[in-house]
Design a protein around this nucleic acid. Structure first.
Lengths: 300, 300
DNA sequence: CCATATACCTGACTTTAGTCAGGCTTACCG
DNA sequence: CGGTAAGCCTGACTAAAGTCAGGTATATGG
């Protein structure tokens, strides 16, 4: 641990989260219980599914239901069946006219709070504050991304793999058809055969990566993808590192991967991470470059 | 209002206060009710007076008493008469050995929380995050400073004026004896004759300034001082602006002030704020420069 | 020395937040 | 088509947070 850095973070936590946080709550609440105000805010003018609200606010299912009933009886919200008429169990909360008015008020107050922070400063200091805030926010987001193993069949994992296919499809010279690519079966990405890692930000999937631990052969990295909402924050690099660590801890001493010539940033990242280009080791039709890296042995 | 700036501040508020703030609370609490943990933390290894705790934590007197009783019955705190044996009503809370151990634990966890934010980042990003945090913190402090009228007899005002005399005494060639300087009587700094403005940060005085509204003559600015804990944040400039505004709103079209040749930053600030040097308009023994500024007429 | 204010305390209370068990309806899987 | 799971709901509960109205002892100002 690096103590001057830690001391600086602690000072920041104290000043900012305590003072600004308290102000924020006060502005938000407007006499109403804070949980209700937050819920109203989170529903928003476009409405939201109950399940999504539960995740976003991190609330108990029963508690959320009760909060919704309260807002309903205050005439601010109506909860009805999902809009798209798919799953009939899913319910959607929508703001009434009164609810939208209340939401607009919260929006206005949120603006006012922000302005009350900027107003006392000179033009130049405002610019500096905002620039520094943006930097802090970006880097905090980077540090809030969690990378964890996840079953490849999990809906969030599936969503990432679909997003991966869509993204690379746009980049490859003639699109990407998973059926033509060398197949990756789910069982290969479940321990002990391999692992699928999911990167999440506030429980939302924002990236993935997988490694196959081929017995008696180098481990193989597949499906490294990072959502463009968090690109440029070093998540790809971290994902790569986690996958390498997973393989190294289980005794593999080499990892390799293949990639397409159009994914130039990915190629640059592999090189920067210590990968060297090697001869083709498979017949993946979409691949133009093959890379390998030797891993330092690690205790499990 | 400047909407891209406001939007950036709002994003920051959301990400930082909500997410980091929540983490902070969780780390702090350790199973104990948050209010108790915060109180224990605030008492600190050196102990604290009950009244000070009430102010710092913003708690109801009865609620605080009850929290102290709980910590006492848990053997973490003892509340006794004030250390300095002055006012016998004042009581001081002191940590017991167990309480100090608990405090050290909180301190450790606070370090861990800070580290948990830094750990996922690369070295370079850590440095950038800490630098940006320091910048945000500084500028937020600047924006949290409140400038308000205050009776010149208020203890906080007196403390500022004493600090002012001490500071300039160190800078002047042969010290500063208020008795030799042109006197400023309290009544001259009370509306409608004039005003004394106090700058506070979290209710602590950190600066002052005054203006005398001489009937039929230019208004006169006196006693502009800023604590060195908040120097370099534009507080002096703001104070000057507020004093000018006060005079302008009441119909004065010129303000002037005198200053000592050794106060070079102050002189630079006056020039930057649009003051021009004029002939001496008084016989202040400590003054070497006299400045004046014309004010644009303002409605009250 | 008396009236009044201050600092802290106690008891009684309300509101808010959050948890847990179980129940109903709809979806899904073999 | 029957069993199980998912999504949401209700009821019953607890703990924490916070408020308010007095009460006691000490200070303070005339």
């Amino acid at each position: 641990m690096d103590s001057p850095l830690i001391a600086a973070v602690r000072r920041f936590n104290r000043t900012v989260t305590q003072r600004v946080g308290a102000l924020d709550d006060e502005y938000m609440a407007r006499g109403r219980p804070l949980a209700q105000a937050r819920l109203l805010w989170e529903i928003g003018p476009g409405g939201a599914e109950v399940a999504a609200l539960r995740v976003r606010l991190g609330l108990d299912s029963g508690y959320l239901s009760r909060l919704l009933r309260t807002l309903e009886s205050d005439g601010l919200v109506t909860v009805g069946p999902a809009e798209q008429a798919g799953d009939q169990r899913v319910r959607t909360a929508v703001l009434t006219a009164a609810g939208r008015a209340e939401w607009a008020e919260l929006d206005k107050r949120s603006d006012e709070l922000a302005w009350s922070i900027l107003a006392p400063l000179t033009e130049a200091r405002r610019e500096r504050l905002v620039a520094a805030m943006a930097e802090v926010e970006r880097l905090l987001v980077a540090s809030m991304v969690v990378i964890e193993p996840c079953p490849p069949g999990d809906p969030r994992a599936r969503a990432c793999v679909r997003a991966y296919a869509r993204d690379v499809g746009r980049r490859f010279d003639d699109g990407f058809d998973p059926a033509l690519s060398n197949p990756v079966r789910d069982e290969e990405l479940v321990p002990p055969a391999g692992v699928f890692l999911l990167a999440t930000l506030n429980a939302e999937p924002v990236g993935c990566g997988a490694v196959k631990l081929h017995p008696g052969a180098p481990a193989e990295i597949k499906r490294v993808w990072v959502s463009d909402t968090v690109r440029g924050l070093g998540i790809g690099r971290r994902m790569l590192g986690e996958l390498e660590r997973y393989a190294a801890e289980r005794g593999w001493t080499t990892v390799r991967l293949d990639t397409n010539r159009n994914l130039t940033e990915a190629i640059a990242m592999y090189r920067a991470a210590g990968y060297r280009e090697v001869e083709p080791y498979n017949t993946e039709p979409y691949a133009h470059h093959w890379f390998a890296k030797d891993l330092a042995p690690v205790g499990p």
